[in-house]
Design a protein around this nucleic acid. Structure first.
Lengths: 140, 140
DNA sequence: ATTTATGCAAATAGTTTGCACACGT
DNA sequence: ACGTGTGCAAACTATTTGCATAAAT
C-alpha cells in the first residue's frame, strides 16, 4: 500500500482520492473537481479534507501540484496529478483546457546551463506553453 | 505621454504607478508593494486603484504580470514589471527572492517546434527557473 | 459639463484552520 | 484505548466590484 509506505494512515478519503487520481482519464484535476467527483460517486468527503490530503500527498511526492492560468477571467487555481517519478512539462490549450505533457532534454539541459552561468543551481522549474489549435483564420 | 498613447487619462495614480515602475531598482513588484511604496512616499492611492491601474496597464501592454511561486507557505501573488517590448523569462532565487531575466533563443525555438508537433501554435508561455546559490553542502 | 477614475468597504474565490467528533491501528 | 484524521464552519489572502465622490478633459 502506497499510503502506508509514505507514513500515512489508510483512511477512506485518502484511499478514494488516490484511486481517483489513478483511474481518471483526465490526469490533471483541481481540488474542487476531485471533491465533486468523489461526492457524485457517493463518497462523502469534505472539501477541506481533499485539500489536506492533496497537500500531504504532495509532500509525500505522491502527487504534483501545478498552477495553470485558466485564462479569461476565471480565478487561478491549483490542479494535481499523480507523480509518476518522471519529470515533464505541460502544454495547455487555452481554448479547450486540454493538457499535453512533454519532455525536452535539450531544454532541460539549457536550463541547467543558464542557472549555472548565473551562479545558481536549479531547485525546480515551471514551464507551461499556452497554445491554440493551429491555422485559425480569425482570432477571438 | 505613454498614458495618452494607450488611451488612458493622465491621472495622478496612473502617473505615479508608472513612474515607480520606471524608477525602482527592483524591476518586479507586487500590487501591495506598489501600494505601500507610493503611500510611504506620500501619494495616497487606494489598493483597489493600484490593482485597477495595473490591470489596465497590462491590457495596454505597458506592464507584464507574473505569478511566481513565493514558496514556504506564503500565498501566491502576482508581480508586475514594465513591458520593455522584448520577451524574456525568469529565474527566481528561492532563498532571496531575487529575480534574474534571461532569454534563450534555442529554448524558444524548441517550444515552437513542440507546439507545432502536437498541432498547436503558441499563444504564450511561462517559464520560471527556481534556483539556489550553487555549491551548498547540506540541503534543507 | 461630462465622462471617467478613485477610494472605501463589502464581496469573491480558492484555500487553510480550529475544534469537537469519528476512525484506524 | 490512543492518536490521528475528518467534517463543518469560520478565518484568511489576494483580488475584484458597487457606489458615491472627485478629478480630468
Amino acid at each position: 500500500m502506497e499510503l502506508r509506505k509514505v507514513g500515512l494512515k489508510v483512511t477512506h478519503p485518502r484511499l478514494q482520492i488516490l484511486r481517483l487520481l489513478e483511474q481518471t482519464d483526465r490526469k490533471h484535476l483541481t481540488a474542487d473537481e476531485i471533491y465533486r467527483l468523489l461526492n457524485e460517486q457517493g463518497d462523502e468527503i469534505g472539501l477541506a479534507t481533499v485539500y489536506r490530503v492533496l497537500s500531504q500527498f504532495e509532500q509525500a511526492c505522491l502527487v504534483r501540484k501545478h498552477m495553470f492560468d485558466p485564462g479569461s477571467g476565471r480565478a487561478l487555481q491549483a490542479c494535481y496529478e499523480l507523480h509518476d517519478g518522471e519529470h515533464h512539462d505541460h502544454m495547455v490549450c487555452v481554448e479547450t483546457g486540454d493538457v499535453v505533457e512533454f519532455v525536452d532534454p535539450e531544454i532541460e539541459e539549457r536550463l541547467h546551463q543558464i542557472a549555472k552561468r548565473h551562479g545558481f543551481q536549479i531547485a525546480e522549474h515551471s514551464l507551461v506553453i499556452y497554445v491554440k489549435p493551429r491555422d485559425r483564420r480569425a482570432e477571438g
